[in-house]
Design a binder for these strands. Structure first.
Length: 704
DNA sequence: CACAAAGAGGTTTTT
DNA sequence: CCTCTTTGTG
């Protein structure tokens, strides 16, 4: 595999801090894997290398590429997501942070349930205090490393919110469980043990990080402590920072240069992925963002067909069009797996799925309702969670009356009361309450645990389904239940596969707890979504959200639903930072395409059940016309794409099109405006190019 | 206390 | 549009 000069430079720099700013399609993964290969050639032992990625998909693809690159046994090389690696280390040293050996990992749904519990415990109304929002808010604090005590003195913060945060933490602790943010926080807390930290610093001589722009405060601190020796190689792209909502701080890129003075900086700007028109279009879109480190991708390739833009009548027409285009592609000998349909939110997949299904085209949906997130799967696993840890209150509450066994809301409320008053787990409380039906449930779990002893993983799953009449319960649910029954059988398969798979083998050898395969499986279920659906071997069209698409590439990309309110998303419209992130997301989506990029929007769309007229996304306005071919042009020539009235355009002190003078840039024309008041930004076309300026700062003189 | 029916409410993105 | 919650009945 050939590397260009810059790539080669990055790969072979001497040990020391390195920051690679790598544009989309500039061979980022190749550089990262080649760097690892280089280190190994230079005599590094695989066990001295830690490679961190952001998603499971990325970790997987890097491992594959590395295996192709080097012949040696990669045993001992740690490669995985932040959360996955944090989990590994916590398993090894759980005692140091006060966790039980088989602590549970709560997924987002579990966390939200626990927030609900916390609200109930505190006697707060979950109508007024939205559990979902609270969970998001608390999650954001935790991603930023902000503990309840840090919030104590904030007068603007309602006391109730703080109380919920505290109660939530308490409930988690009592259950011996951790949420996603805890994995990172506790892994960081481990570093307070200086001896332990030194041990890991010694071990991981080389730390490599992918998608560095997506790291949050806690992750950065963790890395910084671990890589105090400075042998840290990070790769990132500020233009692809799309996880700000999850606490990611692009600033970490600047922080890196400060924290590691003398860090070498390498820029990769040559794009090998996309054709010139695709690149030109993507560059034009991202150019509208202020505050960029400023990178312009270029390609040595010439030619390539223009970016296409289809104006659909509605979401059905959009799906019909896309599927027809895929059929053309296949008819001309293209592979289905080289086609991707990318959308802003997972809910948009439905019409595409229906049309693909109707046409008999295999497809695979990533994200959305994932296998391990399905209710029937989580129910079944909850039994196993109780088998492993009786004090897992979330699991207890989930299945204590499922299927119905006469333990209703009243009993449960009494149980909760009792447990809360005495600081007991629900399991302990149930034991003390002497209620026959509860007793029967406890016996059921104990029996289950007894029988699960010394059984294989899939047998354990089967045992749950035999001992607990979950199958019958679903079977009575008619059509809906049928799919769920299939999923339950699939769960047995998943357990069998997991027991044999590498993903568990890696953990098992590190795992000091014998016979804890079940625990690892449950973690796997929480940490990895389990991309179910179509058979892996099948040549299938790929459907996924823009976020999931990051890091991937496809010959033919359909970027759909480019409408105001959908993309950019409604929730981002008011907030300039949010809009900038949406724009980066658009850039990420466009740069996934290698040969052909097709953009779609619909004039009318059913959203949340009702039909509504849609306006073309503002991002479409920024496309260079010469690179774009409109597939259903408007009847009248040169009528532009309908442009949305920006939400707060009326607030703009200068009318669009007005001539203005800027003290530095000279005369220009007002092109656009977004945001409101002093927060607003104004775009002006100067002779030297167009610029976005903050209205709160800029001093403009209107000329006409 | 279980279950069925009707109503209300809430919808981004991921580990 | 879908799920979850509340309400009403047996």
């Amino acid at each position: 595999m050939e590397l260009n000069e810059r790539q080669q430079e990055a790969v072979s720099l001497p040990p020391g801090p390195v920051l690679v700013l790598a544009g989309a399609g500039s061979g980022k993964t190749r550089v990262l894997t080649s760097r690892i290969a280089h280190l190994l050639e230079e005599g590094a032992h695989p066990g001295q290398i830690l490679a961190v990625t952001f998603t499971n998909k990325a970790a997987q693809s890097m491992r594959q590429r590395l295996a192709q690159l080097v012949q040696i046994d990669l045993h001992g090389l740690w490669m995985g997501t932040f959360h996955g690696i944090a989990h590994r280390i916590l398993r090894l040293h759980h005692g140091l942070v006060g966790l039980p050996a088989q602590f549970q990992v709560l997924d987002a749904d579990d966390s939200q349930r626990l927030i609900r519990r916390a609200l109930k415990d505190l006697g707060l109304d979950d109508k007024y205090w939205n559990p979902r929002q609270l969970a998001a808010r608390i999650g954001r604090w935790k991603d930023g490393g902000i503990a309840p005590d840090d919030l104590r003195r904030d007068p603007s913060l309602p006391e109730a919110v703080l109380a919920v945060y505290r109660q939530y933490e308490l409930l988690k602790e009592r259950a011996g469980a951790v949420d996603f943010a805890d994995l990172l926080l506790l892994a960081l807390r481990l570093w307070q043990d200086k001896a332990l930290l030194a041990q890991y610093q010694e071990r991981f001589q080389h730390v490599l990080v992918d998608e560095f722009q997506d790291t949050n405060a806690v992750q950065y601190q963790w890395l910084h402590a671990l890589a105090a020796h400075g042998q840290i190689f990070v790769v990132g792209d500020d233009d692809q920072s799309i996880y700000g909502w999850r606490g990611a701080e692009v600033e970490n890129i600047f922080r890196f240069s400060q924290d590691y003075p003398g860090a070498r900086l390498v820029r990769l700007e040559q794009n090998y992925r996309s054709t010139a028109p695709i690149l030109a279009a993507a560059n034009a879109v991202i150019a509208h963002n202020a505050e960029r480190l400023g990178k312009t991708l270029w390609t040595a390739r010439s030619g390539g067909s223009p970016v296409q833009l289809y104006r659909a009548y509605n979401e059905e027409d959009e799906a019909r069009f896309v599927v027809a285009r895929i059929q053309d592609w296949v008819a001309k000998g293209g592979k289905r797996e080289d086609c991707a349909i990318l959308y802003r939110s997972n809910a948009q997949s439905r019409p595409f799925e229906e049309h693909l299904l109707r046409e008999g085209i295999p497809y695979r949906v990533y994200g959305g309702l994932r296998f391990f997130e399905r209710a029937e799967i989580k129910d079944t696993l909850a039994y196993l969670r109780l088998v492993l840890n009786r004090h897992d209150d979330a699991a207890f509450e989930r299945v204590v009356n499922l299927p119905a066994r006469g333990i209703g809301a009243v009993t449960l409320e009494r149980l909760r009361q009792y447990s809360q008053e005495r600081g007991l787990s629900l399991w302990q409380a149930a034991g003390e309450l002497q209620q026959p039906k509860l007793q029967a449930f406890l016996n059921l779990i104990d029996q289950l645990a007894e029988r699960c002893r010394d059984r294989s993983l899939d047998e354990q799953v089967s045992l749950v389904l035999e001992q607990v009449p979950l199958r019958d319960w679903h079977a009575r649910d008619g059509d809906r239940g049928e799919g769920r029954l299939e999923n339950l059988e699939e769960l047995i398969n998943a357990a069998r596969t997991f027991a044999l798979s590498d993903s568990s083998a890696g953990l098992r050898e590190l795992n000091p707890v014998p016979g804890d395969l079940l625990g690892e499986f449950l973690t796997h279920a929480a940490l990895e979504a389990g991309e179910g659906g179509a058979e892996a071997w099948q040549d299938a069209v790929q459907l996924m959200s823009l976020h999931s698409a990051k890091g991937l590439e496809f010959a033919l990309v359909f970027l759909v639903g480019l409408e105001e309110g959908l993309f950019p998303h409604q929730r981002s419209l008011e907030d300039p930072a949010g809009l900038a992130e949406e724009r980066r997301l658009c850039y990420v989506g466009m740069t996934r395409a290698m040969q052909q990029l097709v953009l779609c929007y619909a004039e009318s769309r059913r959203l949340h059940g009702s039909e509504r007229m849609a306006m073309a996304s503002r991002f479409l306005r920024d496309l260079p016309p010469e690179e774009v071919e409109e597939l259903r042009p408007r009847a009248r020539i040169s009528r532009p794409i309908p442009i949305p009235a920006a939400s707060a355009r009326s607030d703009c002190p200068y009318p669009l099109g007005a001539r203005v003078r800027h003290p530095v840039f000279g005369e220009g024309t007002v092109l656009d405006f977004e945001g409101g008041g002093r927060q607003g930004r104004i775009q002006i076309q100067f002779a030297s190019g167009s610029k976005w300026l903050a209205l709160g700062i800029v001093a403009l003189e209107q000329l006409s």
